[in-house]
Structures are given as structure tokens and as C-alpha cells.
Amino acid sequence: MRLARHGTAGAEQPLVQGPDGVWRDLRPVVADLTPATLPQVLSGVALDELPVVAAPGRFGTPVAGIGKVVCIGLNYRDHAAETGAQLPEEPIVFLKTSDTVVGPDDEVLIPRRSVKTDYEVELAVVIGRQARYLADEAAAAACVAGYSISNDVSEREFQLERGGQWDKGKNCETFNPLGPWLVTADEVADPQALGLRLWVNGQLRQDGSTQDMIFGVHHLIWYLSQFMVLQPGDVINTGTPAGVALGRAGQPYLQEGDIVELEIDGLGRQRQTIGQA
């Protein structure tokens, strides 16, 4: 299944799409797709009994009321190489606040006084059941609700040149477009075999594969569960491949008016216009 929410910001309505490719209204089953209702929807939906939605409008975030966004830094070998960093021995973990999350095609705002706003196409994992001190990666796999696309927008000066933790460069408003939908785990045969791509103004900047991850999806879920409790609806941004502005000398950072487009095999596509805060 694909799960999504469409409509104006703050008033989105839940949708489901089955193998026939038809979007259907989920409101007869749940009022919205939230951390509380996600497990119910994942347990099964009688698609034929739901009203057809012929032309969905704007897509919002696939899940409303996300609890936390857990991010993994330097998780692609080629990205670590382009930034001159050593491969980490354990996952590098940081958090984004849930209010950074916006719809997949919503405007992304360059912060005031920013000169180094960057892009990062990432595979996003949405948790479907509580993950707490998991025993192994098999147990972790059972906790995946599905997969989506995330743009882990980052301000590199704030992140790396202003002291303290990375959080200052990661938590600016609109810095986590997510969507356009959640593809349930059963529809993704191998999360470690997905191509990821990102364009700026039509120019291909990132072209990688989740095969290049240092720590795979199931390992990350297992690992994180040893340090925090992951709840349904939580999101894990699993890292970005090479091609970010930070890693390419002379490659420009984002500017007002730029168009950023992202896609991951089988998970859809995003398109954002860059504005100014």
C-alpha cells in the first residue's frame, strides 16, 4: 500500500492506494494518519469499501503528529569521502524537531543570514511498532511501517562553524520535506538496493544507491533502540550519498528561487522551490 495525506496545510485528509493504483479516502477507517492510527491501518484495510479520490490535491506529510525525527550523519561511504571524514565506527546520531517537517512540495526557506543552505536526499524509514532494546536486526525489520523520501536540508555554517552540536544547522523551519507518501514495508523488497537522486535547477547533483550505506536500515533501527525508544510514526533519516554542496568545491549552495527535485526508486518524487525566511 501507499499511505498519504492530501489537502491544504493543516487540513490534510488521509489516503490509501492499493495495487490498482487508485487513491481512496481513508476517513471511513481513521480520521487521520497519525502515530496512534498507523498500526491500525497497517493491520489491513478493505480497499474496495472506501470511496475513490479521483484527483488528490497537495500532498502533506504522510503521517501527522510525528513524534521525533532521528537522523544519521555520514552514513554513505562516498559522502564521507567527499567531505574528508573518516568512516564512523558507530552511527552518528542527531535529532531534528518534528516541526521542521513539511510536505514534499512545500517551499523551503533559507534562514536569515544563511550563506550555506544545503540539500540531502535521504531514505526515510517510518516506524510502525515500538522498538525498545531490540534483540537483533530481524526484530528491527518487523518494526518498519514503510519508507518515504526526506530532504535533510542543512545550513552548513550554522552546523559546522558556529560551535556546539549540529542541531543549529539542522532545525531551521521547513528543513525536512517528507513524502509524497509512505510505501509500506512489504512493497520494498530490499531497502539496501534503492537509487537516490537529487537535482538543483535541472542539474543532477546527487546520484547514489542505498547499497553504499555504511550502516543498513535494520542495523540502524536495532542500534537506535539500544539508546532510545522508537514509537510508531517516528522517522529515521538514514543519511545521504555524495554530491552535496559541502563536498564539492565551487558547487553553489541553495539560493532563493532555486528548484530542488528529489526521487528514490519506487518511492515517488519531491519538488521544492527555495524561498527566503
Rank of each mutant, 00 (worst) to 15 (best):
L220Q: 11
D258N: 12
A189D: 09
A9C: 11
V102Y: 03
V41M: 11
C172L: 13
V260A: 15
G164T: 01
P241C: 08
G10I: 01
L123M: 05
H6T: 06
G247V: 04
P62T: 07
A131V: 05
P14R: 15
Q211V: 14
A4F: 04
R269E: 14
D20E: 09
P180E: 00
L220N: 07
Q130C: 09
V144L: 13
T100A: 05
P252S: 09
Y223K: 02
A249I: 09
A46R: 15
L230I: 00
P111H: 09
R58C: 14
V53F: 14
D190C: 03
T83W: 00
V183C: 11
G164F: 13
G233P: 10
E263L: 05
G103H: 02
E49V: 12
C71Q: 04
G243T: 00
I259A: 11
D136L: 03
V229S: 14
V126N: 14
I259H: 06
G146V: 08
I236G: 10
G257I: 13
D99M: 05
Y133M: 15
L15Q: 02
V69R: 01
A193I: 02
V229T: 12
W166I: 06
D20N: 08
Q86L: 13
I92T: 05
A46E: 12
A242I: 04
S209L: 04
G60E: 12
L109S: 12
P177R: 11
P191C: 09
D258M: 05
V102K: 01
V235R: 09
R27G: 06
W166K: 01
Q270F: 03
Y133I: 03
A193M: 08
T34N: 14
D186N: 15
D258Q: 08
V217E: 06
P88A: 15
D25H: 09
Q13W: 01
F227Q: 15
I92Q: 06
A193D: 10
A142V: 08
P56G: 02
A145T: 03
L134G: 07
A36W: 00
T174V: 03
A145C: 09
E122G: 02
T238D: 04
R269W: 10
K68S: 10
R205A: 04
V53Q: 12
T238W: 11
V125R: 12
L50K: 07
G84K: 09
S154D: 03
G208V: 05
E137T: 12
V126P: 02
L123P: 13
E261G: 04
D212R: 15
E173C: 10
V183N: 01
N176S: 10
L230E: 02
E263F: 10
G73L: 13
D265G: 07
I66H: 01
E122D: 08
R112E: 08
G239F: 03
R162D: 06
W166L: 07
R27M: 14
L196V: 14
A55V: 15
G268C: 06
L267A: 14
E122K: 12
L254R: 07
F94G: 01
V217D: 07
P104W: 13
E161Y: 11
N176Y: 15
Q255A: 13
T238C: 09
D258R: 02
G202S: 10
G163Q: 14
W181Y: 08
P232N: 10
G163C: 12
